[in-house]
C-alpha cells in the first residue's frame, strides 16, 4: 500500500516537474519574428512598407490633438512622447494603485481620457485606440520587456499562468499545449510560435489591420472552440500580464507585422 502510494507520489512529482520543465528557458525565448518568412520580415523591417506605421502616424496626430471637455491633449501632460513614453509599453500591464489591479496600455489610455481629458472612452479595437497605443508602444521599440516585476502583481501573474496552463474549449487545449510544448512545429502549414507578445498592437496580414493582443487571444480561444473572454476582462488582462512577464528581456517591436 505504502509502496503504491510512493509510486503515485513519484508519478505526480514527475508530471509536475515535467510541466515546469515544459516552460521555455529564458535564453531560448524567441520573438514571433524569428518564425516568419523573409518577405514578412522585410515588410516589418522597412518603416515605409510596414502598414503598422500608418497607425503610428495617426497616433502621433492624436497625441497632440485636444479632446474632451477638459480641452487637453496627451502632449499637454506628457510632453514629447519620444522621451516621456520610452519604455512605458515594455512594463505594461502595470498595477493601478487606485483600482488595485493591473491595467493594460489600452485601459490606461482610456483611464487618462476619463480622468484627465474628461472624454468618452475609446472602444476596444477602434482605429483611434489602436493608433494611440501603437504610437505609445512604438516609443519602446528595442526596449527589453520588463512587465510583471512588481511584487504586488503576483496573484494576477499566477492567475494568468493558470489560465495559460488550463485546458479549455471543445478541443480541450491549453495555450501551453501549443506554445510551450510544440512551438517550431506546424499547425495547418503555419508555424507554431512561442506566443511572445513583443510587437503589439501589431499588423496581421490576415486581419488586414492592426489588432491588440486581446484580439489575438480571443481568436485563439475561438480556435479551440472555447467561449472567448470579453475585451478588457480580468482574465484577458491576467493572461497578457503573464505573457509579457514570460517574454521578459525580449525587445519590443511595435508595430510588428505577422502573417
Amino acid at each position: 500500500m505504502i509502496f503504491w502510494r510512493a509510486i503515485a507520489a513519484a508519478a505526480l512529482l514527475a508530471t509536475n516537474s515535467a510541466l515546469l520543465a515544459g516552460e521555455i528557458p529564458p535564453d531560448e525565448r524567441r520573438s514571433g519574428y524569428s518564425f516568419m518568412g523573409p518577405d514578412s520580415r522585410a515588410m516589418q523591417d522597412d518603416d515605409t512598407s510596414n502598414p503598422g506605421m500608418l497607425f503610428v502616424l495617426d497616433g502621433e496626430a492624436l497625441w497632440t490633438k485636444k479632446t474632451g471637455s477638459a480641452e487637453k491633449a496627451c502632449a499637454d501632460c506628457h510632453g514629447d512622447a519620444r522621451s516621456s513614453m520610452k519604455g512605458v509599453a515594455a512594463r505594461y500591464p502595470a498595477l493601478d494603485k487606485t483600482l488595485a489591479r493591473p491595467v493594460t496600455l489600452d485601459q490606461r489610455i482610456n483611464l487618462c481620457r476619463g480622468n484627465h481629458q474628461k472624454a468618452t472612452p475609446l472602444s476596444y479595437e477602434s482605429r483611434d485606440l489602436l493608433a494611440l497605443s501603437a504610437f505609445v508602444a512604438h516609443q519602446s521599440r528595442g526596449v527589453p520587456i520588463t512587465a510583471g516585476g512588481d511584487p504586488e502583481l503576483k496573484p494576477f501573474l499566477e492567475q494568468g499562468r493558470d489560465l495559460f496552463m488550463q485546458r479549455e474549449g471543445q478541443l480541450n487545449l491549453a495555450c501551453a499545449n501549443c506554445h510551450d510544448h510544440n512551438f517550431d512545429k506546424r499547425l495547418a502549414g503555419a508555424p507554431i510560435t512561442q506566443a511572445q507578445p513583443t510587437g503589439y498592437p501589431l499588423y496581421r496580414l490576415e486581419w488586414q489591420t492592426l489588432g491588440s493582443i486581446e484580439r489575438r487571444l480571443r481568436s485563439c480561444m475561438t480556435g479551440v472552440r472555447a467561449q472567448a473572454y470579453d475585451y478588457g476582462s480580468p482574465e484577458l488582462v491576467a493572461l497578457e500580464l503573464y505573457l509579457m512577464s514570460r517574454a521578459r528581456g525580449l525587445p519590443m517591436e511595435t508595430p510588428a507585422v505577422r502573417p
Binding site: D46, T48, S49, P51, M53, L54, Q208, T209
Partner: peptide
C-alpha cells in the same frame, strides 16, 4: 489619409530609382 512615401532624397542624373508608396485605406 496617411501615406508613407519612400523616394531617395538624392540621386545622380540617369540613375534608376525605386519609389515605394503605402497608403491607408480599408479596401
Amino acid at each position: 489619409m496617411t501615406a508613407l512615401i519612400n523616394v531617395p532624397a538624392k540621386a545622380r542624373r540617369g540613375d534608376i530609382i525605386e519609389i515605394r508608396t503605402l497608403t491607408s485605406h480599408i479596401m
